[in-house]
Design a protein around this nucleic acid. Structure first.
Lengths: 109, 109
DNA sequence: TCATTATGTGAGTACATAATCACATAGTCA
DNA sequence: TGACTATGTGATTATGTACTCACATAATGA
């Protein structure tokens, strides 16, 4: 049976997972892997309204995935825990596996 | 600007992230890290209704995180892409980092 | 001070998700 | 066959999330 301690840990982990579980937020993380960026450049890159992007960024900051600092008028965001990028290689493996499964199915025709 | 190809990739990646972005589903993945299990044992471990657990399992199978096979009356689930466990060490790092930040704040009092 | 620019936020709407209950399905064994 | 067990699914309800628009805030520089 699940301990209270573990339940709390899983809760926290789920929050971090939720923070990146959105196409736009994945795009943002991918954009930031090469260095920090301001909101306006992020918004232009992902092709969405600034207010919307701002909200997504706030979610990721709250979860501890990103951090930000002010620089004049701009607010600059960057990855706080770059290990989050490792997740991408895992998803790549998942997708490759799915492709293999589909190939197997097709070859059985 | 985001290419169509990348948008599709990010969509797929977000689906995988979503599939584990829930405390109960994290608990299930954690439970399965030591080996395959049937629905009834999973349900008992996480302490939720079987029908609910069944639905969560279906979501993770659809995303390619888990796979299952029938064995008599039981359906046995296991991790399909164990690299998903790497995500856990990253969340641990995120949480440690958050702890450090809080300590810093407190020491400034 | 005023206009401008970058960012964040409140409110409303639309949509997605989770949990529950009752029921359906499928396999097992007497 | 009929009772039993494990699992999955339809319908419903409650809750959470994403997006948009209008507006608020904050920093800059003429």
């Amino acid at each position: 049976m699940l301990t209270k301690k573990k339940q709390l840990l899983f809760q926290k982990q789920a929050e971090i997972a939720k923070a990146i579980a959105h196409p736009l937020r994945i795009a943002i993380v991918d954009f930031l892997k090469d260095g920090e960026q301001c909101v306006c450049d992020i918004a232009e890159y992902v092709g969405s309204e600034r207010s919307n992007v701002s909200r997504h960024l706030a979610v990721m900051v709250k979860a501890g995935v990103l951090e930000c600092r002010k620089e004049g008028l701009k607010v600059i965001y960057k990855l706080k825990t770059p290990c989050i990028l490792d997740f991408f290689s895992c998803t790549a493996e998942c997708l490759k596996q799915q492709l293999k499964d589909t190939e197997k199915l097709l070859s059985a025709l």
